[in-house]
């Protein structure tokens, strides 16, 4: 612009007559031709744009709008779906967990019962064995006592026999044998 103005200045200096000839078209000159040209050019531009160009742009924008809206909708529905799946998973997990808990509880109870039962059984068995042992011991003791008594009688008889044989004469010995026999 600066250059063009400067150059215009040069031009004006170099050719003032040409300038003077053009000066008659002033700044407010009413050139109807220009008016007509403006209307024609503007209307043509408008028609071309409105018929062939703007529909493309508007359509493109509309399509992109729809595409983005679709993508957003998809994302939202996917999110909802994921949320549903997640809650489903959580429920399943919870169910599994409670089932496991239940199974554990059952097992524990079962084991407890089993242990108690076994304990009872062992105890009973123990008592039985103890009883048996006691009875056995009693019997044995009786048997032993009889045996000892028998042996003692035998021994006493043997001793007395030997004593009698040795000193059957003495009064004292007789008393001893008597005492021995009564003690057995």
């Amino acid at each position: 612009m600066m250059r063009s103005a400067g150059v215009a200045g040069c031009f004006a200096l170099a050719a003032p007559p040409a300038l003077a000839a053009q000066a008659e078209t002033g700044i407010f000159s009413l050139n109807l031709g220009l008016f007509v040209w403006t209307v024609v050019l503007f209307v043509l531009t408008l028609l071309v744009l409105a018929k062939w160009v703007f529909p493309l742009i508007a359509g493109g924008l509309e399509q992109r709008h729809a595409k983005i809206q679709g993508a957003i909708d998809d994302a939202l529905s996917a999110r909802d779906e994921a949320k549903g799946l997640l809650s489903q998973q959580e429920a399943a997990l919870e169910a599994a967990r409670s089932e496991a808990r239940e199974m554990l509880e059952n097992a524990r109870q079962h084991a407890d019962g089993l242990r108690k039962e076994m304990l009872e059984e062992a105890r009973a068995q123990q008592a039985q064995m103890l009883d048996d042992a006691r009875r056995e011991i009693g019997h044995e003791r009786e048997r032993l006592r009889d045996e000892i008594r028998r042996d003692a009688v035998d021994l006493a008889l043997a001793a007395s026999e030997r004593l009698i044989r040795a000193r059957l004469d003495a009064e004292e010995n007789r008393r001893l044998v008597h005492e021995f026999v009564s003690d057995v």
Partner: peptide, 12 residues
Amino acid sequence: EVMMHHVVDSNI
């Protein structure tokens, strides 16, 4: 003149 010449319409 220079100013007007620059602003007004012309055939050249």
